[in-house]
Design a protein around this nucleic acid. Sequence first.
DNA 1: GCTGGAAAACTGATACGACAGTTTAATATT
DNA 2: AATATTAAACTGTCGTATCAGTTTTCCAGC
Lengths: 255, 255
Amino acid sequence: MKSMKTEVPVLSRRKPADYAESAYRRLCDAILEGRLMPGTPLSRRVLAAEFGMSTVPVGEALLRLEAEGLVESRPRAGSRVRIPTASEIQGNYELREALETHSARLFAERATDADRKALVAAAEKLDAMFDELKRKPYSAARHAQAERKHMRFHMLIAGAGRCVELENAIERSRVLLFNWLFTMSAEFGELPGGWHGTLARKLVGGSPREAAEAMRVHVRYRKDEVIERLSELAGPETARMARGPQRHRNGGSRK
Amino acid sequence: MKSMKTEVPVLSRRKPADYAESAYRRLCDAILEGRLMPGTPLSRRVLAAEFGMSTVPVGEALLRLEAEGLVESRPRAGSRVRIPTASEIQGNYELREALETHSARLFAERATDADRKALVAAAEKLDAMFDELKRKPYSAARHAQAERKHMRFHMLIAGAGRCVELENAIERSRVLLFNWLFTMSAEFGELPGGWHGTLARKLVGGSPREAAEAMRVHVRYRKDEVIERLSELAGPETARMARGPQRHRNGGSRK
DNA sequence: GCTGGAAAACTGATACGACAGTTTAATATT
DNA sequence: AATATTAAACTGTCGTATCAGTTTTCCAGC
């Protein structure tokens, strides 16, 4: 409607510094890699000094991490890496089931032949990796890498559904669960042989409903066991941070 | 472990001012009520002047709104109320289907007798309201109120599932869709007679799978039509804000 | 008339300082 | 010794100022 001058090219994408983004990345990575364990206090000032910036961008990073559920903060008394409660873990499992089953359904409906081929190939490689993992002694690095590959496998399924919103939601729920899983070390890489191969075949060959149900059993596998183990590490249900829930509760419609 | 002195009571909950929270509420309400239409520029300075505070808390509020998807911003060139793309609308529909069907399943599994009774009662009242809405001439206020009640109905189902994470996700996806729906005025309050009553009966009486499938058809009702209409208002798929996507893209694991 | 480019008027990003809560440690009181 | 009180050391919150990008405007040149 207005001016229609020479369409500007898309060449502006650099970040002159973006301290906030940098701080966010460093903190997020540190939490996800387990270097910052749940409960670790996060002071804006010490982080600012450590990162060589002021407290403002650090605060922005903490705000984003809080919105994502990785950090909790009390109004004027500090932030820390979030300690999940047992019910939160259970809730995230529920969320994951809802999202992944729908993702599988979309895969069965929309995946191209290339998608399906890629999936079975990825499944075979993943199963081989888990087999190998079973033989070797436990190693945090190997375990973490396995989790990353597992994540990519599920994101491959989600990607074939052609729905970014669903992809993002799945990634978020997985991140939340696996950040917590991270704290518990070994013995959870052991899966039945060909576990992902059979799943992939059902997704590729089955109807949407069959695909969804196959994914449901996949997601629920060992669910109770994992929840129980995680709940031990989790903070007690009440009084998680001594004084009620974190601020900025809801995030949608009020009134 | 540490000190075990006189357990501190839970009496700290006030906010000495919390300008940021206030700004967030005002902006969020204004957007959700349609007073700030998609595309409206949001300048930190003018908002700060209007709210009687500095730009810092306004910035925090905008950051939260951006994380929620209600606002978009380009690094150093201003924020505005987000204009959704057609694919985003479609994606949110997909998300909503995944979440609501699982919510219905949980309802069938976990709802108490009181939950079930409350649901059928709410459904009848809702249907009556929609019937009345059909007769009266269009009114933005009535329409908005109807949407709110409709929202509450769905949150009633989610609440019986006993899973806050799922509830929050459903609320968020609904808010995102209906903030956009808000811009299109009338003719979408018209539903088949007893529409929610039949759904409620299936949720109350059916198996988990039947409940989920009933919810699926409920959510999909008129889906394509709504998407098409919304897509007209939506920004074009490419070049939504002239220069690529908003910053702070992903929100989970990178590396 | 249209095009090109410089300058002005925006924008958010960041630093710093002051402040008011919260927590913790030390101290006084019983 | 256990408890109440106080002081000190934290915490995030917010205001103001500065800076560097982006967008718009406006004027020169064709």
